[in-house]
Structures are given as C-alpha cells and as structure tokens.
C-alpha cells in the first residue's frame, strides 16, 4: 500500500459529485460521461451543444490545474499500443452496450440506488480487477 492518498481522493471525488449535482440542477441530466460524450455526435440535434461544452470543460481542467498549481498532473501509462487500442475499443463499445461507465452507473446510478447500476459496478470492477491480476506477474515471480 504505497502512495495511499485518501484526502486528495476525497476532495476530488466531492468535486465530481458537485459536478453531477450541478448538471442535474441546471440541465436535469445524469453526469454519465460515456453517454454524454457519445451524444456530442449521436444525440438528437439541439441536444448536442451543452454536451460539447461539458467535454470542453473536461479537456480544459488539467490545463487549468497545471496553470494554477504550476505542476503538470501526473500521467503514467504503462500499456503498449496493442493494449491501448484494444482497451479503447472495449471501453467505448462496452460502456455504450452497458448504458454507462464509472460516472453514470458508479456515481449517479448508485446514488439513486438503481439496481442496474449496482450490477454494472460490481461487474466492471470485478472484470477490471481480474484483468489487472491476469496481466501482472504475481508478486515475487
């Protein structure tokens, strides 16, 4: 258990929750990023522009942090290109087929006790943990 950061994790999580509450209060929408992002192209006309602006805010956030904190946010990606492409395809297809991801099911869905979201979260967490366990050589090997 190195690098355990419960305080920054909780502050960040609270901001994610605040964003979800803002989007519900002002737009009446769930802050589910996979559906929100996909809808920038595939949603009905007239239901796209707010999505584009949300995505722009998301993209700008690391730069805003970088400027304010004078420190580039850490980004360490170990996976090579075959895994990056396979992972991206699976995440894109899977989140749409399963109607949501970490935000839509994990935060918004669980907070309103949706049975679909509970099943989704258990399954994607288990699948993610199993994948990491299979990819990583066992400790001591």
């Amino acid at each position: 258990m190195e690098d355990f950061t419960p305080i920054s994790a909780s502050i960040g999580g609270a901001l994610i929750g605040l964003s979800a509450v803002l989007l519900m209060a002002f737009h009446g929408r769930i802050a589910g990023i996979s559906g929100l992002f996909s809808g920038t192209v595939f949603a009905a006309k007239g239901d796209r522009s707010w999505r584009v602006f949300f995505v722009l805010g998301l993209v700008a956030a690391p730069l805003v942090y970088w400027l304010a904190a004078a420190e580039k946010p850490a980004f360490d990606l170990e996976a090579g290109w075959p895994l990056i492409i396979a992972g991206g395809l699976l995440v894109g297809f899977g989140t749409r087929l399963g109607s949501g991801c970490t935000s839509g099911h994990g935060v918004c869905g669980l907070s309103r006790l949706s049975p679909r979201s509970m099943v989704s979260v258990v399954l994607f967490m288990a699948a993610g943990m199993a994948t990491v366990a299979l990819l990583k050589p066992p400790i001591g090997a």
Partner: peptide
C-alpha cells in the same frame, strides 16, 4: 457491456 468495459479499463 459492463464486463467488456471492465476488461478495457483494466
């Protein structure tokens, strides 16, 4: 969908 997403996430 959740399982496929989880694999890609991992």
């Amino acid at each position: 969908g959740a399982v496929l997403f989880g694999i890609g996430w991992g």
